[in-house]
Design a protein around this nucleic acid. Structure first.
Length: 564
RNA sequence: CGGGGCGUGGCGCAGCUUGGUAGCGCGCAUCGUUCGGGACGAUGAGGUCGGAGGUUCAAAUCCUCUCGCCCCGACCA
């Protein structure tokens, strides 16, 4: 491909709205262009990268016996009504009516379609197990897109679905995906770590997310260097030293004027925050007030809390709502509370003689003991793991890092097949729901993560497996140097003839421009052809990632470019 | 949805406070010189100042509304 013909342009300046390296470089080097918030075009270079990423994924999916197909982007709303998600999913799903007035949706995912296909096609246990996948555009109207290609609203995802007779079969399919994903990210040049994750609104029994560490990542991971434990902070258990066993002391009210925060309270009473209990008030989707009680030095993990009380969404409670339940914001505790669900963290339940609110402005109570002074409705692990807490597996201190989710695998179970009636007739003569798993990888996000991991101040440095072209020929001297032109054309044409197209910067630009652009674009090898290199015996080959350069005979480079 | 910021030629920006002929750098076009690290000279093209309404003799500039984009938060297979 001649650069003079390529539909692209490089930018000398960083685009004003790009912050992450991947965003800046992909725009600046002419790989992508933004159309709207979270909506991007892939230019020819970007498209080639995406195709190569897809090919890696395709090979690994095919390798585990997953069959490629294609399912629609536009779905009748009725299909989503059958699974119940038409109503349970919020405004992030785009809805519209067709000309006949039928409700339609833009697909966010394809569990329903798979289940619909299964109920059409699968009759007997002999037809299972089965795995299918496709690459398809998804539209999710995220409340906030950000970070260039990292978080977008429209994107291509590889999603696959396993369909098994039972959960034992699901375990096998899940494991196959786990292994395939590990190989995929390895091949893509991504150091992805699998972390246990929340199953969220997808339902199901187990899930892993494949995460790439990145300071700008939106997920928080709890990692243990000692034993390799890893989990999403949303679900990670924290091991904290056991509270001292003490005799319960009598309740004692103490004036704490102005001490409405844990920090103020601890300072005022000259005690450690560990000796206090704090109450957090949330209202769930049904309007129920949830009072969560954790130790003063810890924070509530809303995901854990939501799973504990079977809530889907929370909002912070208003002060009036808290007072209506018999508690006083700033000086609150569940003592004497009513009309609220009291959820107490395990650690608080096991602690003795904590300081907690008196539900009276300016007063706290010493020696509060759960069970004696108030009755928890639920006792559960609801706190967020902290940096330095004990690893739940080995006890060593954990660290907390940000990560970007590049893939996920879910054990779905029978949620969708039951709702849609996708069943098979078993060996036992009975009808059973098919057991599903679902597995996703965002292609564009993977591309962005590869750039995050493979770039320097000069530009991108693609791993060979995903580079849009294996080599970038830079001819120096232009039309004045027929020998240079001839060698460049020979290499370019030979590679093209061998089906291994290379990029050739044949533009009439100064050497500085061409070399700078070559480094920005990031092909694995930059081949410089100039009077100087020819005089030295060939062409100069620079390894983009390392900067290593050497003069190679033209024949050797030609052989390398054309080998299959 | 809450908070903050920004919309001026393809890109990056100044001009706005204090209304009065729209500017700079890069890029682009033509010609000439140059040619291994973002060259130089000359000439030139290109802008409804996001949009609508208002104030005014006069609006990029002041006022109102509106659209879009970015960042933080909330949210999120």
């Amino acid at each position: 491909m001649r650069l003079s013909q390529l539909f692209f342009t490089t930018l000398r300046d960083d685009p004003a709205d790009a912050e992450m390296p991947s965003h800046r470089l992909l725009v600046r080097a002419g790989y992508v262009r933004q159309l709207g918030a979270g909506i991007y075009s892939l230019l020819p270079l970007g498209f080639r990268v995406a195709k190569r990423v897809e090919q890696v994924i395709r090979e690994e999916m095919d390798g585990i016996g997953c069959q490629e197909l294609e399912m629609p982007v536009v779905h009748p709303a009725d299909l989503w009504r059958e699974s119940g998600r038409y109503d349970s999913i919020g405004p992030e799903m785009a809805r519209f009516k067709d000309r006949a007035g039928r409700d339609m949706v833009l697909a966010m995912t394809h569990e329903e379609v798979v289940a619909d296909l299964l109920r059409d096609i699968v009759r007997s246990y002999r037809q299972l197990p089965l795995m299918v996948y496709h690459f398809q555009t998804k539209f999710r109207d995220e409340p906030r897109s950000r970070g260039g290609l990292i978080r977008v609203r429209e994107f291509v995802m590889k999603d696959s679905y396993s369909c098994d007779l039972d959960t034992a079969g699901l375990d096998v399919s899940y494991e196959k995906h786990y292994e395939a994903y590990s190989r995929i990210f390895e091949r893509l040049g991504l150091r992805a770590i699998a972390v246990a994750s929340d199953v969220g609104m997808m339902g199901g029994s187990a899930a892993h997310e494949f995460m790439v560490l990145n300071p700008a990542g939106e997920d928080e991971l709890v990692l243990c260097e000692a034993c390799g434990f890893s989990a999403n902070r949303q679900v990670a258990k924290a091991r904290v030293s056991e509270p001292p066993a003490e005799e319960s002391l009598p309740l004692e009210e103490v004036a704490t004027p102005g001490a409405a925060t844990i920090a103020d309270l601890a300072a005022f009473l000259e005690i450690s925050p560990e000796r206090t209990a704090k109450a957090i008030f949330l209202v769930d989707g049904t309007g129920r007030l949830v009072t969560a009680v954790v130790r003063g030095d810890m924070d509530v993990n809303e995901t854990k809390l939501a799973n504990t009380v079977k809530a889907t969404v929370f909002r912070p409670a208003q002060p009036e709502e808290i007072r209506a339940a018999g508690m006083w914001p700033g000086y609150a505790s569940p003592i004497g509370a009513h009309d609220t669900l009291v959820v107490v963290d395990e650690l608080v339940a096991r602690s003795s003689n904590l300081v907690a609110g008196a539900n009276r402005e300016g007063f706290h109570l010493r020696n509060v003991n759960a069970g004696r002074d108030y009755t928890p409705d639920v006792v559960a692990d609801i706190v967020a793991a902290r940096e330095g807490d004990g690893c739940p597996s080995c006890g060593a201190p954990v660290s907390i890092r940000n990560g970007i989710e590049v893939g996920n695998i879910f054990k779905l179970g029978t949620k969708y097949t039951q709702a849609l009636g996708a069943t098979y007739l078993g060996e036992d003569g009975n009808r059973h729901p098919i057991v599903m798993g679902s597995y996703g990888i965002g292609v564009g996000r993977a591309v962005a993560c590869i750039v995050e991991a493979h770039h320097d101040v000069k530009g991108i440095a693609w791993p060979e497996q995903v580079a849009p072209y294996a080599a970038h020929l830079v001819s120096i001297g232009g039309a004045r140097e027929p020998k240079v032109q001839a060698v460049a054309r020979r290499l370019h044409d030979a590679a093209a003839a061998a089906g291994r197209e290379v990029l050739w910067d044949d533009r009439d630009e100064s050497p500085g421009v061409k070399l700078t652009d070559a480094e920005l674009l990031g092909m694995p090898r930059i081949v410089t052809i100039s009077p100087r290199s020819l005089a030295a015996g060939g062409v100069e080959v620079t390894v983009r990632a390392t900067g290593d350069r050497s003069i190679e005979p033209v024949e050797a480079v030609e052989a390398w470019l054309t080998r299959s």
